[in-house]
Amino acid sequence: MSKQIQVSGLDAYYGSHKAIEDVSMTIEPRSITAFIGPSGCGKSTFLRTLNRMHEVIPGARVEGKVLLDGEDLYAPTIEPVSVRRMIGMVFQRPNPFPTMSIYENVAAGLRLNRGRISRSELDGIVEESLKGANLWNEVKDRLNKPGAGLSGGQQQRLCIARAIAVQPEVLLMDEPCSALDPISTLAIEDLMAKLKDKYTIVIVTHNMQQAARVSDRTAFFNLAAQGQPGKVIEMDETSRMFTNPTQKATEDYITGRFG
């Protein structure tokens, strides 16, 4: 498990509008890569190109290559559905299925991908996933209650459990803490540190302290002006990015001079 992602010359469009331009980068396995940058710079768009969720939006398309351990995700023979099965995603707002119980939420992806699966095996995976998401102890007595009854932070960890239950290679997180309080945020950050032993993790964040705390490598996105496409300005080890950036724009952003 856990694979490397290589992106080269990637452009993403919404209709005729180019949202990101010429992004190339390597995302290493078993590490956390953070994307930072001002709003509208295309970091979330880029994240969504990595599991082909970008094209869900009508009129959206992508040019360029994304290789998962050397295999092109955008090759004509590859279906987006199977890409998403390999590369899990956690969204900005916790989005458990409102009509399903906690148990069913975690099992949802497994039921899709594994066809017939024995109850005991399913029980095992659900428990393991909830433990993996540091949620087991809080919900083990109410697995059949609706997921919507949990707190925001618990819901987000439920979504993480749901994503890791299908054992993906990569976990994409789109500002996973922006709707959460500080204590829940801390719980998610602890969880990320634990998950990186098994998964390639990519996180988009507005919070630079968070990027500094959790990530191994950081990419800074920016755009020249409103309406221009976003680009990667700089990408490096997180420790170096935050102490000694090579680009003026990165330094300005990190020190809070704009953005």
Binding site: L68, E71, S82, R85, N113, G115, E169
Partner: peptide, 12 residues
């Protein structure tokens, strides 16, 4: 290169 499995025929 067999990383990305196709979805099952039944689902398709």
């Amino acid at each position: 290169m067999t990383t990305i499995q196709h979805i099952s025929t039944g689902r398709r």
